[in-house]
């Protein structure tokens, strides 16, 4: 089982973040949700390993549960 990489791994953090935000320019909230969904699916396929993906899903959800 591949361990989810939680160490800094982005080659260009600022570049990535700007591109991410920029991709939502001009979209309605609904279109933004669809854009995010497509992006998640593309990235998930790139990662591939279901165990790794589930670690990421669990980790992301844990913050939502803590915040509530």
């Amino acid at each position: 089982m591949a361990e989810l990489n939680l160490s800094p791994n982005l080659t260009e953090p600022d570049e990535f973040y700007a591109a991410l935000i920029e991709s939502h320019t001009g979209l309605t909230e609904e279109e933004s949700m669809a854009q995010n969904a497509r992006l998640i699916l593309l990235l998930a396929n790139h990662i591939g390993d279901c165990d790794t993906l589930k670690q990421a899903i669990t980790l992301a959800r844990a913050q939502a549960d803590e915040g509530s």
Partner: peptide, 24 residues
């Protein structure tokens, strides 16, 4: 739910152009 509907349609939209989404 709304979000599951959005994901479902995102899969369909991607499947039209990319083989990777078709198994989903």
């Amino acid at each position: 739910s709304k979000i599951s509907h959005i994901f479902r349609n995102a899969v369909l939209d991607l499947a039209e152009h990319h083989a990777f989404a078709r198994p989903i």
